[in-house]
Amino acid sequence: MTTTRRGGERGAATVLVVSLSAVLLLVGSGLGVVAAMVVDHRRAQAAADLAALAGASELGRGGDACRAAGAVAERNGGALTGCTLEGRDVLVAVTVSGPRWLGQTGDLSARARAGPASPPE
């Protein structure tokens, strides 16, 4: 039994492999951007949490809470974009530069609040 190939189908597998490779590359790049955004958002949240805790600690000692929060946010790769005091609570907003892949230009931000524990009721 002999098999004959038609001339019109020659190279069709190559085109299919190249097309599927391009789709996989595009999907992989998109997933890479999403993963980088998740990591940077977690970094922003960690910086905000630590900055709020540092600010609350400094406020408890009678110092400048926002200056302490800003210093801690900067040491953790963020920039303090907001700091307010509500009674004995410190509210901070921190921004971290996001990934710059595939035209993505947004920065990621996070907020945190810290203060003394409320007494149980």
Results as ranks from 00 to 15, higher is better:
G82H: 02
A117I: 12
A22N: 03
G78F: 01
L24C: 12
L24A: 15
A48Y: 00
A110R: 01
L24I: 12
A35W: 08
R10D: 13
V90P: 01
T81M: 10
D89K: 03
A13D: 06
E58N: 07
V38R: 13
L25R: 07
G62A: 08
T95H: 02
M37T: 12
V90Q: 01
A68M: 02
E74L: 14
A12H: 07
V17L: 13
N76F: 08
G32M: 06
E121M: 11
A13S: 12
T81H: 05
A12C: 09
G62R: 07
G115E: 06
G98M: 03
L26T: 15
A44K: 01
V90D: 03
A36N: 00
G115Q: 04
V17A: 14
A35P: 03
W101E: 09
V38H: 11
V72R: 10
R113V: 14
C66T: 01
A112Y: 03
Q104Y: 15
L80I: 00
L16M: 14
A110D: 02
R111T: 09
T84K: 10
L16A: 15
L85Q: 12
G106F: 06
M37F: 04
T81V: 15
L24M: 15
R43L: 06
A13Y: 09
V27K: 07
V33D: 02
A46D: 10
S118D: 15
A68D: 00
R75I: 04
R10P: 07
A47D: 01
L20M: 15
G77P: 00
A22S: 06
T14Q: 11
G98I: 00
V94Y: 00
P116H: 03
G11V: 07
E74R: 13
T14C: 12
S109W: 10
